[in-house]
Simulated scan of single mutants.
Amino acid sequence: MNKKLVQTFLVGSMVVMLTACSTQGHFVIPEGSTLYLGGRPEPVQVTSTGMVDTPAFGWDSMGVPPEKGIQYRVEKDGKTLQEGKLRPVLRAKALFLPPIFGILTVPTGLNPNITYNLVTGKQE
């Protein structure tokens, strides 16, 4: 088999896996605050347009708030302003990844069709 073809296939597969592992959403957060998602210790980067690109979430985030959903926390000056759960979406991409990697770890994502307004508390 052609070595260059195999390398191209492997690189292409890695790119598909990496893009299938992230999720995007649109947020409105209080000015000067920091957003944490999914109980992760590092904050997410919110762009000037409100877009967030983050690794996807597991099955534990699937469900309807307030009992289930993607955990979030908004902090300002080291103090928690608010916390709760966000409405998730089942990511169809995850169903096409290898079963152990895709189904068990990354099936839940942010809903790209809504705005998570954490100032007014609306998710629509």
Rank of each mutant, 00 (worst) to 15 (best):
I103P: 02
T108I: 04
T120H: 01
R91C: 13
I70G: 06
G102Q: 06
Q71P: 01
P112E: 12
I103Y: 12
V106K: 07
T105V: 05
P98D: 07
R87P: 05
L110N: 12
N113A: 13
E83R: 14
T80D: 06
N111Q: 12
N113H: 15
L95K: 02
L104M: 13
N111E: 13
G78I: 15
K79T: 11
L118M: 04
I100S: 09
F101C: 11
L90H: 00
P112C: 09
E83F: 08
P107L: 02
Y116N: 05
G109S: 11
Q71H: 10
L110K: 12
P107N: 03
P88S: 15
V74P: 03
P107D: 00
L86N: 01
K122C: 06
A94Y: 08
F101Q: 11
L118R: 08
V106C: 14
P88F: 06
L90R: 05
E75M: 14
L110I: 04
Y116T: 02
T80P: 09
F96C: 09
G102D: 12
Y116D: 02
R73G: 01
I70Q: 05
E83T: 13
Q71T: 08
P99Y: 06
K85F: 01
E75V: 06
K76S: 13
G121M: 03
Y72G: 10
K122T: 12
L118N: 10
Q123A: 10
P107V: 00
T120K: 00
Y72V: 03
G121R: 05
F101Y: 15
E83C: 00
N117A: 02
L90G: 02
G121H: 03
D77S: 10
A92F: 14
T115N: 08
T80R: 03
T108D: 03
L81K: 07
L95R: 09
R87Y: 12
Q82E: 14
V89Y: 01
N111A: 13
T105S: 15
P98A: 13
P112K: 03
N111L: 05
T108C: 13
K93E: 15
A94D: 02
P88N: 11
I114D: 09
G121C: 11
R87G: 03
N113E: 15
K122F: 02
L110E: 10
Q71I: 02
G102M: 14
K93G: 06
G69F: 09
N111V: 00
G69S: 11
L110M: 05
G78P: 11
P98S: 10
Y116R: 00
K79H: 03
V106Q: 12
G121N: 04
P99V: 13
L81P: 04
V89G: 00
N117M: 06
G102T: 13
R73I: 01
I100Q: 08
E75R: 09
V106P: 14
K122E: 15
K93S: 15
F101P: 07
N117S: 02
T108L: 01
G78E: 11
I70K: 03
K85Q: 09
K93H: 11
K76C: 10
K85T: 00
Q123M: 10
G84W: 10
V74A: 06
Q123V: 03
I114L: 05
P99A: 11
L90Q: 07
V74W: 04
P88L: 03
P99H: 03
K76M: 10
D77Q: 09
I70N: 06
E83M: 13
L110Y: 07
T80L: 07
L97P: 13
V106H: 11
